[in-house]
Nucleic acid binder design. Structure first.
Lengths: 198, 198
DNA sequence: GCGTCAAGACGATACGTTCCGTCTCGCCAA
DNA sequence: TTGGCGAGACGGAACGTATCGTCTTGACGC
């Protein structure tokens, strides 16, 4: 029988929570998501299985939270400065994204997370709300400012623009189509800005 | 103990093979990849488990083969005509891709397959060799012809061009960022061709 | 031709193992 | 005193392997 009452968050053990997320992050990088088990996470974290089941609904949710926690530590990269030079600002964020995707440590966890998110609508929604939409929105906001300043056409499609920036890089990353370096990031920015002109 | 000798393909039962692939395709659409089991496939196909384990190394490989078999039936869409009108030809293939991705029946299987491919390097290699690379190459070839005809600049980066065409659509599909209709396909073609100009 | 026979794929299923998700213990802190 | 905690027992599901007996196939001897 499932529990009748929700657990009390104020009594939650922070050490256990952190240990679980750390163990999950380590294990997903070591054995991959498919061979990752709740029991292994509990064992490495020195934690009872029930403590995991009490706070997370699925293995995917644990790994997702671990990913979020790790990304929060690195700042999340959700600041897109406005120096006035639109191309330079976009290059900065695209280069940072490329660096992240090219990092082998990120690669395995990122792929595992992506695979889960694709097949779990709840997880996808949470992924969009907490990671993807904020990233796209700050990018869109930067483009909107440039549009207001007359640097790009007034009728530019900003939704399409952000997809032109991130879509190809994501595509290249997932399929291993080519190197993810700064030159590639720069070319994407150049191509996108060129596409926005009529 | 694992088998020491490879099975003899000439003695393979074609009915069993087809029944397994059909059952796998049906089940992945019904219950999703995560809840799909080899035992369920064997039961529905009216086949012994060992017959599956004899010919496929993993659940992912079975689903992948099922996907390939189904796609071969529909022709695979690997013909990109050259009518002389580059934009029209690209719109045709992008629209067809959008229709496919927007099809709910394709969506679930496609996501399941993508998730598997992302985390299995062997599967990714086979996916690229048998599906992705041929698609990208016919597109690249069409662009190459246009470049030779002087319709696009001589220094156009064709690898980047195909990523600009397919990457954003794939990105939008996986993350559910917006509708995958013909208008979107047309805008992608327009943006890509515009980006190729200096 | 034709009977014989070994090889091997097949459906079926038993087996030990792993992991699932639930539960029930004391233990301990709020 | 309440409720989260570590630990682990529990029944169930699916794993992947190992054999069954059956059936088809191809090689060989006559």
């Amino acid at each position: 029988m499932a529990r009748h009452t929700a657990p009390d968050p104020t009594r939650r053990n922070e050490q256990s929570r952190a240990a679980i997320l750390t163990a999950a992050a380590e294990l997903v990088a070591e054995v991959g998501f498919g061979k990752l088990t709740i029991e292994k996470i509990a064992a490495r974290a020195g934690v009872g299985k029930q403590t995991i089941y009490r706070w997370w609904p699925s293995k995917g949710a644990v790994v997702f939270d671990a990913f979020l926690a790790a990304n929060r530590d690195t700042g999340g990269g959700l600041d897109l400065p406005d120096t006035g030079d639109l191309a330079a600002d976009l290059r900065a964020v695209l280069r940072a994204t490329a660096d992240e995707l090219a990092d082998p440590a990120f690669d395995r966890t990122g792929r595992a997370l992506t695979a889960e998110v694709l097949n779990d609508p709840d997880l996808l929604r949470e992924y969009r709300e907490r990671l993807l939409d904020p990233l796209l929105e700050v990018t869109r906001a930067r483009l909107r400012a440039a549009r207001a300043a007359g640097l790009i056409p007034a009728d530019a499609d900003l939704d399409l623009a952000v997809e032109l920036l991130y879509g190809p890089m994501y595509y290249r990353w997932l399929h291993g189509l080519g190197p993810l370096d700064h030159a590639y990031a720069d070319r994407l920015v150049e191509a996108t800005l060129s596409a926005l002109e009529p």
